[in-house]
Design a protein around this nucleic acid. Structure first.
Length: 678
DNA sequence: GCAAGGTC
């Protein structure tokens, strides 16, 4: 349209984000299909012609170069040769970016405002400047920290300078993860297959996987080593004046007792006692404010706990609710709403939903949450919240999705409601100088727990006494109980601990748990996880070779190096060389221990026996063999180096053909074209 | 085929 303005290419991280940018900035949007399920949007803005290209997260993968595949070389050579790792660009995106870059005079990088977003921008930037070197000096960064019109306009009017340091820091982390992950996994897998000849058997090693596995192994060790103890409480009943009704049962202050003789001594002493003297009775009102806004970890923990879901299923449900427009972007670490967040609109919509109407009698202000949380890092997304639209069952929304949404909506509404008010009381008394006491709590006003009904406190019967009062005492007795070992990890507790330890990220944590299960390092029993002998063996062996890798310490060290690269106190090449040589030394150590590892794995596998483990594995491998022979004969027409494989669209369930080199090559074709004849 | 991290 405007022939005087510049053509600007803008790279976004995902299509939902680009859509919002365009709706805010452009008076008229032209959408163009540029690839399979890839659309650009363009239009005029401030005299320039903007073209937005949404990516789908990363567009490169780290891989091994030719001759360094599985079985082609010893795993240690992946680390020994500093050039063994290569970066593969997604074929389709590369083609699109090249074409768009040659037609552009400026490049604006508008991926998420975090270091991973910088790295994703860098992937596109590299392709673009190769195709059009002029862009190198005409690249700007759009640092947009929230998808509200005000903030989008601010970000696009105040373009930031583009610096590659943060992107390189992340790139370094990606290389390190590949060295450790590829070389470690292959070495351990080779060792495992020597003692258990089985196709498809993979034992993986990773910077995030091992510390996560260690948490589970440690808990199991703690539980096995736990000594069950018999302990005792001493109790007595306080009766009313008529001595007919029990007012409350009180407990000896030294409970629980570990020594049975001590218990007997006190019981003997109090044998004939029928009276006690109240030493104090205190009552107070306690106000508990609503919880803070929820991030991904909170939402996954909530849904997995309330609906008995696995963490990855919970995240999937959140993603679907987001795609269907019922909740905000579900991958966020942020627990803080901005002061100008438009809560009013959302609440007004929710208020029209009859079941939620009564909650609004308890809401005084619809503009601020009552307890705001903390903002983490340079997060762009708001805490998870409902959009105000009420979902109904149908299409992708199942009753489970609806149920999940109600938890999120009720949490959100709860944050604006009044405090939970409790009455708490404590009575203290002496029976022949022996101190007894008891507490109660009763609800005066449900407050926000009216909406968040799963957080309603336990009620205990209330009582009232006066200091100095003499009371009737009966049934002085002891009660024995057994101590319990610490609880196993559930999806909810595990994911919260991982967040606390800063292991993994908001979106990768559920996948890591799933992967450990797939590797049969852990099994899910009921709603909690238990480590297998294989899992325990892996931790034992790596703990002896490289203890830092099985604790969060290695992740910390990598983070420190990343910060150095980002702040230019260390170069990217230096970071890679340092960590590569460190890992090389440790991989040699692993090799020296390989026979020991084999022996230990042999034992671990023999314990597993023949039952479910073998059956499931063998079924898996025949299935794999079948699909391989069926599809191996068709070379990919796009890249010519991969083969077409039958795939299933996880969303629609439709079968299609895709290149075996995906994501490096993203060629796909519908099934009928390549189907065998006859 | 392997990791971890994005997103679909």
């Amino acid at each position: 349209m405007s022939t005087h303005g510049k053509n600007v290419l803008i790279i976004g991280e995902k299509s939902s984000q680009v859509r919002t940018f365009c709706e805010t900035l452009l008076p008229a949007i032209k959408t163009k299909k540029v690839g399979k399920r890839i659309y650009t949007r363009s239009g005029p803005w401030k005299g320039n012609n903007l073209t937005f290209l949404p990516l789908s997260g990363h567009i490169t993968t780290v891989d091994t170069k030719k001759g360094y595949g599985w079985g082609e070389t010893a795993p240690i050579n992946i680390v020994q040769d500093p050039k063994a790792l290569i970066i593969k660009e997604n074929y389709e995106f590369r083609k699109i970016i090249r074409e768009l870059a040659t037609k552009s005079e400026e490049l604006w990088l508008a991926t998420d405002p975090d270091s991973e977003g910088d790295n994703i921008a860098y992937e596109a930037y590299k392709i673009a400047i190769r195709a059009n070197p002029i862009l190198r000096v005409n690249t700007r960064r759009v640092w947009n920290s929230s998808l509200t019109s005000v903030e989008i306009l601010r970000a696009f009017n105040q373009l930031a300078n583009w610096s590659v340091n943060q992107a390189l820091a992340v790139q370094g982390r990606r290389m390190v993860d590949a060295w450790v992950g590829f070389a470690g996994t292959r070495e351990v897998t080779i060792a495992a297959r020597k003692v258990r000849n089985e196709r498809g058997l993979v034992l993986s090693v990773g910077r995030v996987q091992l510390p996560t596995l260690k948490l589970i192994v440690d808990k199991d060790i703690e539980r096995t080593e736990f000594l069950v103890q018999e302990k005792y409480n001493i109790l007595a009943d306080l009766l009313d004046e008529s001595r007919k009704q029990i007012l409350v049962s009180v407990q000896h202050d030294k409970s629980p007792f570990t020594n049975e003789n001590d218990v007997q001594t006190i019981l003997d002493k109090l044998k004939k006692s029928t009276l006690g003297k109240i030493s104090s009775f205190q009552q107070k009102q306690t106000k508990i404010p609503p919880p803070r806004p929820m991030n991904t970890t909170d939402a996954i923990a909530l849904l997995s706990r309330q609906l008995k879901l696995k963490a990855d299923n919970a995240l999937e449900i959140l993603a679907t609710l987001y795609e269907q427009g019922y909740i905000s972007y579900p991958r966020t670490e942020n627990r803080q709403f901005k002061s100008n967040f438009p809560h009013n609109e959302i609440l007004t919509n929710l208020q029209s939903h009859p079941p939620y109407k009564p909650f609004f009698q308890q809401i005084k202000t619809m503009t601020q949450v009552r307890t705001n949380g903390r903002k983490q890092g340079t997060e762009d997304h708001d805490p998870i919240h409902p959009t105000g639209e009420i979902p109904s069952i149908g299409g992708k929304i199942t009753p489970l999705h609806l149920k999940s949404w109600t938890f999120i909506a009720r949490w959100y509404i709860g944050m604006f409601m009044e405090d939970l008010i409790q009455q708490r009381g404590t009575v203290r008394l002496a029976i022949k100088e022996e101190p007894f006491s008891q507490k109660y709590q009763s609800t005066e006003s449900l407050g926000w727990t009216e909406a968040m009904n799963w957080r309603r406190p336990r009620e205990t019967p209330s009582f009232s006494f006066e200091a100095g009062q003499i009371v009737q005492v009966r049934n002085i007795r002891s009660e024995a109980f057994k101590t319990k070992p610490p609880a196993r990890w559930s999806d909810a507790t595990l994911i919260k601990r991982l967040e606390k330890l800063k292991i993994g990220t908001k979106s990768s944590r559920p996948d890591v748990i799933k992967k450990l299960e797939l590797r049969q390092y852990i099994v899910r029993k009921g709603n909690s996880y238990e480590s297998t002998n294989t899992g325990k063996t892996i931790i034992t062996v790596f703990n002896a070779i490289w203890p830092d890798l099985v604790t969060p310490k290695f992740t910390r060290q990598v983070e420190i190096r990343m910060d150095e690269v980002a702040s230019e106190t260390c170069s990217y090449d230096m970071m890679l060389e340092t960590i590569r040589s460190e890992y090389l030394f440790l991989h040699q150590k692993l090799l020296s221990q390989i026979e020991n590892l084999q022996d230990q794995l042999k034992e671990a596998f023999s314990d597993l026996g023949s039952s479910t483990y073998k059956k499931r594995k063998s079924h898996f491998s025949t299935k794999q063999r079948k699909s391989k022979t069926e599809n191996a004969s068709y070379p990919c027409p796009a890249c010519n180096s991969g083969n077409l494989r039958e795939r299933t669209n996880s969303r629609t369930g439709e079968k299609f053909f895709g290149c075996s080199r995906y994501p490096a090559c993203s060629f796909t074709s519908s099934r009928n074209i390549y189907k065998k004849k006859g």
